[in-house]
Design a protein around this nucleic acid. Structure first.
Length: 555
RNA sequence: UGGGGUGUCGCCAAGUGGUAAGGCAACGGGUUUUGAUCCCGUCAUUCGCAGGUUCGAUCCCUGCCACCUCAGCCA
């Protein structure tokens, strides 16, 4: 809603600024490199905002490149979803969408180059043997017995790997670096493996695929990426990233920088875990409004600006922390408060009969959609019988309840008249079922002439002229603050009551709301017309987030 | 117990030799036809700990401690 383009001062932006000042490059080029093996989540939003944000800030380019070197886990659905999510967040990549698979020919050529240089060899060790030979964190590894094959033999074997002569896992191409390196990534890393799988982009052209390490830096170099920004867990890969760039005839030498990934309270930010929530049908899908996925947040009613603001708020550093979900909620509420039109919805109806009004009283009232922004007005019907929230009427007056409705007291009906409770009825269980009231004349837009002003305001809807709407009320998906950092399985902490569907009565104008329109149902919370299920015939709204509450009065 | 990182308020985060920004949360108070918003105020004599250098250290040095990360032919 708000088009914010915050200027960032994080360490990545500083490095870029310094490099530009030093004339190291004419233009900054970054890239956002997701693997299409799942939907993007809020942690990716941080990376997107960083990479696209830095490029935009310094007049450079940011590429969208799918890191698609593992065909078995990837598919087109994820590619489409990722593109849609990036655009929804408000970013557009430079040029066409790119794929690491676009570079498979070049990568293959470079693998040959390494072999010819005596810096790569075909290893016949089984995966299990390779693990044994690799050593441990404290012990060096041992050289593979296949390490010293001749260039000719390696060339022949690699050609036959490519030709499909060998089974998966029977052999692989390895870089010849140092089996005794304290950095495990340098212990002759695997760079090409056999995978007889159909690839979503290259079809059946290849049966050997390059690994991440052999792909990423070179892809960056091919694209002219200047600053390759990734998360902290790739820090140990940087020496390898640099080794390939130094040992291959690449067109340029990008530099890798790492930042701490986002961890958020009361949720999980791991594609694998999110996928299991989907696969085990804990949620309705990747875009379930309870999911911390970008598409889930979208369906929940988050705005792109609120997500961008949040990413700006949390900053970018090399320390890894746990961000309080309240920060995300704050960014959300701030945007929604400023931009969302207001409306009235009654969730737990209690009928109020205004006895000094005729049976057929029907008066159209008008109110602004927003108290500050010019979002226009809407009309709603005022009738003899109205509905208020049952929580807004109490038999007894109390200090905590001084702004609400009690017998003999007056209350202002939002955007309408002041009424006074005269009597009420209860059922056998003692529950109030009906309130009788009288309207105070001349109080539309005015205080009562007798000076007995109401203390509070209550939202309401016409009993006869309001419409039904399905409300999907969401709570956090996990009951534990750090569900994936406990001794047990994170699935144990799924909140089984995180969704409840209720029927509410809302003002008629809401039927015409376009899907994905955000609203503030006054005194209730922020809701959004469901992206897929809302219609004029059957209005459906998702609870985005409740209004902030005065905790001193909560009970 | 090898390598690589990180440690500044409950959370995020500036500052990096001159005497601790900001945001979130929290807590007071005011305004209000949303107990929302808005406004005003409070909130680190202290920067993981211990030494050292210095007129002076969160920032430099040394040694500890804690946490994260690496043993996929995943990314």
């Amino acid at each position: 809603m708000t088009d914010t383009n915050p200027i960032s001062h994080n360490f990545v932006a500083k490095v870029v600024q310094e490099d530009l000042n030093a004339g190291k490059m004419a233009k900054v080029v970054t890239r956002f490199p997701p693997e299409p093996n799942g939907y993007l989540h809020v942690g990716h939003a941080k990376s997107i905002c960083l990479n696209f944000g830095v490029a935009k800030q310094f007049g450079g380019d940011c590429h969208l490149r799918f890191d698609d070197t593992n065909p078995e886990k990837e598919n087109q659905e994820y590619i489409d979803a990722i593109k849609s999510d990036v655009r929804w967040l408000g970013f557009e990549w430079a040029g066409e969408v790119r794929y690491a698979s676009d570079y498979f020919d070049q990568l293959h050529e470079w693998a040959l180059h390494l072999i010819r240089e005596g810096k790569a060899y075909v290893c016949d060790l089984t995966p299990e043997q390779a693990r044994e030979y690799r050593g441990t964190l404290t012990e060096p590894g041992k050289n593979s017995p296949y390490r010293d094959r001749s260039v000719e033999e390696n060339l022949d074997l690699f050609a036959r790997m490519r030709a499909g002569e060998f089974d998966e896992g029977s052999c692989a191409l390895r870089a010849k670096i140092d089996m005794a390196s304290p950095n495990m990534n340098l212990r002759d890393p695997f760079i090409y493996r056999i995978r007889k799988a159909h690839h979503h982009q290259t079809g059946d052209k290849w049966c050997i695929y390059p690994t991440y390490d052999f792909t990423h830096g070179q892809s960056d170099a091919i694209e002219g990426v200047t600053h390759s920004v990734c998360t902290l867990e790739f820090e140990d890969h940087r020496p390898l990233y640099e080794w390939f760039l130094a040992n291959l005839p690449v067109p340029c030498v990008p530099v890798q920088y790492e930042f701490g990934r986002l961890n958020l309270d009361y949720t999980v930010t791991s594609k694998r875990k999110l996928k299991s929530l989907v696969d085990q049908q804990v949620v309705s899908g990747w875009d379930d409004p309870r999911m911390p996925t970008i598409s889930g947040m979208r369906r929940r009613g988050f705005t792109p600006a609120s997500v961008r603001t949040f990413c700006d708020m949390i900053g970018v550093t090399r320390s890894d922390g746990m961000v309080d979900i309240a920060m995300l909620e704050h960014a959300l509420r701030t945007d929604l408060n400023k931009n969302a039109p207001r409306a009235m919805a009654v969730i737990n109806p209690l009928k109020v009969v205004i006895e000094n009004l005729p049976e057929d009283h029907l008066e159209m009232l008008t109110a602004e959609y927003h108290p500050e922004q010019d979002l226009g007005t809407r009309e709603f019907p005022f009738t003899r019988e109205i509905l208020i929230d049952e929580g807004d009427f109490k038999e007894e007056y109390s200090k905590k309840f001084k702004k609400k409705f009690t017998p003999g007291k007056r209350i202002r009906l939002r955007h309408s008249y002041v009424i006074e409770a005269t009597d009420y009825e209860k059922d056998d269980a003692g529950k109030v079922t009906l309130v009788k009231a009288r309207l105070i004349e001349g109080t539309l837009g005015e205080n009562p002439a007798d000076g007995d002003n109401p203390k509070g305001v209550v939202h309401w809807v016409s009993a006869s002229h309001s419409i039904e709407a399905e409300l999907r009320l969401y709570e956090r998906l996990f009951t534990h603050q750090t569900p994936d950092k406990t001794d047990g399985d994170f699935m144990e902490y799924v909140n089984t009551d995180s969704l409840s569907v209720v029927t509410a009565r809302v003002e008629p104008a809401l039927a015409n709301a376009a899907a994905e329109t955000n609203f503030q149902f006054e005194r209730e919370g922020y809701y959004v017309a469901d992206r897929f299920d809302h219609s004029a015939e059957k209005p459906v709204f998702n609870l985005t987030i409740g209004l902030r509450e005065d905790k001193a009065l909560a009970n």
